[in-house]
Amino acid sequence: MDLRIVVFGLATTMALAASCAADGQEAEPAAPPRLPGQIEAVTFGLQSDEPGARLYGRECAYCHVGRNTGTIMLQHRLPEGTPAQLHERSNLPAAYVKIVVRNGMVNMPPLSRAELSDEDLDLIADWLAAGPTR
Protein backbone atom coordinates (compact mmCIF):
# COMPACT_ATOMS: atom_id res chain seq x y z
CA MET A 1 0.00 0.00 0.00
CA ASP A 2 0.83 3.33 -0.50
CA LEU A 3 2.84 4.70 2.27
CA ARG A 4 4.54 6.58 -0.47
CA ILE A 5 1.48 8.71 -0.92
CA VAL A 6 1.13 10.18 2.49
CA VAL A 7 4.20 12.23 3.07
CA PHE A 8 3.96 15.13 0.72
CA GLY A 9 2.80 18.33 2.15
CA LEU A 10 3.57 17.28 5.65
CA ALA A 11 6.55 19.55 5.97
CA THR A 12 4.35 22.53 5.28
CA THR A 13 1.53 21.10 7.31
CA MET A 14 3.76 20.80 10.31
CA ALA A 15 5.27 24.21 9.76
CA LEU A 16 1.77 25.63 9.62
CA ALA A 17 0.78 23.81 12.75
CA ALA A 18 3.87 25.14 14.50
CA SER A 19 3.25 28.68 13.33
CA CYS A 20 -0.38 28.49 14.46
CA ALA A 21 0.83 27.53 17.91
CA ALA A 22 3.38 30.31 17.91
CA ASP A 23 0.74 32.84 16.94
CA GLY A 24 -1.40 31.72 19.82
CA GLN A 25 -4.21 30.67 17.49
CA GLU A 26 -4.28 27.17 18.96
CA ALA A 27 -4.42 26.23 22.61
CA GLU A 28 -1.37 23.99 22.28
CA PRO A 29 0.84 22.99 25.21
CA ALA A 30 4.41 24.26 25.30
CA ALA A 31 6.35 23.47 22.12
CA PRO A 32 8.18 20.13 22.34
CA PRO A 33 11.99 20.18 22.31
CA ARG A 34 13.57 20.74 18.92
CA LEU A 35 13.97 17.65 16.80
CA PRO A 36 16.76 17.28 14.26
CA GLY A 37 15.96 17.87 10.60
CA GLN A 38 15.45 14.90 8.33
CA ILE A 39 18.97 14.77 6.87
CA GLU A 40 20.44 15.01 10.36
CA ALA A 41 18.12 12.22 11.50
CA VAL A 42 18.91 9.98 8.54
CA THR A 43 22.66 10.41 8.97
CA PHE A 44 22.58 10.08 12.78
CA GLY A 45 25.59 8.20 14.16
CA LEU A 46 27.27 7.75 10.79
CA GLN A 47 30.52 9.32 11.96
CA SER A 48 30.45 8.02 15.53
CA ASP A 49 33.39 6.14 17.01
CA GLU A 50 30.98 3.99 19.00
CA PRO A 51 29.71 0.84 17.24
CA GLY A 52 26.46 0.99 19.23
CA ALA A 53 25.80 4.55 18.07
CA ARG A 54 26.58 3.71 14.45
CA LEU A 55 24.27 0.69 14.56
CA TYR A 56 21.50 2.66 16.28
CA GLY A 57 21.87 5.24 13.53
CA ARG A 58 21.63 2.59 10.83
CA GLU A 59 18.95 0.30 12.26
CA CYS A 60 16.76 2.49 14.50
CA ALA A 61 17.23 6.18 13.74
CA TYR A 62 15.03 6.18 10.61
CA CYS A 63 12.04 5.81 12.93
CA HIS A 64 13.35 6.91 16.31
CA VAL A 65 15.36 10.06 15.56
CA GLY A 66 13.81 13.26 14.28
CA ARG A 67 10.25 13.65 13.17
CA ASN A 68 9.80 10.06 12.05
CA THR A 69 7.17 7.55 12.96
CA GLY A 70 8.71 6.10 16.12
CA THR A 71 9.20 9.57 17.58
CA ILE A 72 5.65 10.63 16.75
CA MET A 73 4.12 7.40 18.08
CA LEU A 74 5.98 7.80 21.35
CA GLN A 75 5.10 11.49 21.63
CA HIS A 76 1.47 10.33 21.68
CA ARG A 77 2.06 7.62 24.25
CA LEU A 78 4.80 8.65 26.68
CA PRO A 79 4.18 10.79 29.75
CA GLU A 80 5.02 14.44 29.38
CA GLY A 81 8.67 15.10 30.01
CA THR A 82 9.88 11.73 28.74
CA PRO A 83 11.94 12.23 25.58
CA ALA A 84 10.44 10.61 22.51
CA GLN A 85 13.80 9.93 20.85
CA LEU A 86 15.22 6.70 22.25
CA HIS A 87 18.81 7.89 22.48
CA GLU A 88 17.71 10.63 24.88
CA ARG A 89 16.04 8.17 27.27
CA SER A 90 17.65 7.11 30.53
CA ASN A 91 15.24 4.27 31.36
CA LEU A 92 15.79 1.66 28.65
CA PRO A 93 17.33 -1.52 30.07
CA ALA A 94 19.12 -3.60 27.43
CA ALA A 95 16.88 -6.62 28.00
CA TYR A 96 13.78 -4.50 27.40
CA VAL A 97 15.19 -3.09 24.15
CA LYS A 98 15.90 -6.59 22.89
CA ILE A 99 12.42 -7.87 23.73
CA VAL A 100 10.76 -4.96 21.93
CA VAL A 101 12.99 -5.28 18.85
CA ARG A 102 12.30 -8.99 18.45
CA ASN A 103 8.59 -8.88 19.32
CA GLY A 104 7.55 -5.47 18.11
CA MET A 105 5.31 -3.17 20.11
CA VAL A 106 1.88 -1.88 19.06
CA ASN A 107 2.64 -0.40 15.62
CA MET A 108 6.38 -1.09 15.65
CA PRO A 109 7.08 -4.20 13.57
CA PRO A 110 9.67 -6.62 14.96
CA LEU A 111 13.12 -6.83 13.35
CA SER A 112 14.30 -10.25 12.21
CA ARG A 113 17.70 -11.81 12.84
CA ALA A 114 18.45 -11.53 9.13
CA GLU A 115 17.95 -7.77 9.21
CA LEU A 116 19.66 -7.27 12.57
CA SER A 117 21.88 -9.98 14.06
CA ASP A 118 21.79 -10.82 17.76
CA GLU A 119 25.35 -9.51 18.10
CA ASP A 120 24.48 -6.13 16.60
CA LEU A 121 21.28 -5.93 18.66
CA ASP A 122 23.37 -6.47 21.81
CA LEU A 123 25.56 -3.50 20.88
CA ILE A 124 22.55 -1.27 20.25
CA ALA A 125 20.78 -2.35 23.45
CA ASP A 126 23.88 -1.75 25.59
CA TRP A 127 24.41 1.66 24.00
CA LEU A 128 20.82 2.71 24.66
CA ALA A 129 20.91 1.31 28.19
CA ALA A 130 23.90 3.54 28.97
CA GLY A 131 21.57 6.52 28.64
CA PRO A 132 22.18 10.04 27.34
CA THR A 133 25.11 10.67 29.68
CA ARG A 134 26.98 7.74 28.10
Binding site: M1, D2, L3, R4, I5, V6, V7, L10, Q38, I39, V42, Y62, C63, R67, N68, T69, G70, I72, M73, H76, V106, N107
Partner: peptide
Protein backbone atom coordinates in the same frame (compact mmCIF):
# COMPACT_ATOMS: atom_id res chain seq x y z
CA UNK B 1 15.48 12.30 1.68
CA UNK B 2 14.30 8.92 2.98
CA UNK B 3 11.66 8.98 5.67
CA UNK B 4 9.33 6.72 7.64
CA UNK B 5 6.88 9.43 8.65
CA UNK B 6 4.18 8.04 6.36
CA UNK B 7 4.06 4.84 8.42
CA UNK B 8 2.50 6.97 11.14
CA UNK B 9 -0.89 6.83 9.41
CA UNK B 10 -1.59 3.36 10.84
CA UNK B 11 -1.90 5.00 14.27
CA UNK B 12 -5.21 6.62 13.19
CA UNK B 13 -7.33 4.35 15.38
CA UNK B 14 -4.76 3.86 18.18
CA UNK B 15 -4.01 0.16 18.67
CA UNK B 16 -2.34 -1.96 15.99
CA UNK B 17 -3.24 -0.43 12.67
CA UNK B 18 -2.74 -1.23 9.05
CA UNK B 19 -3.56 0.08 5.65
Amino acid sequence: VPTTIGLQSVNWFGGRGGH
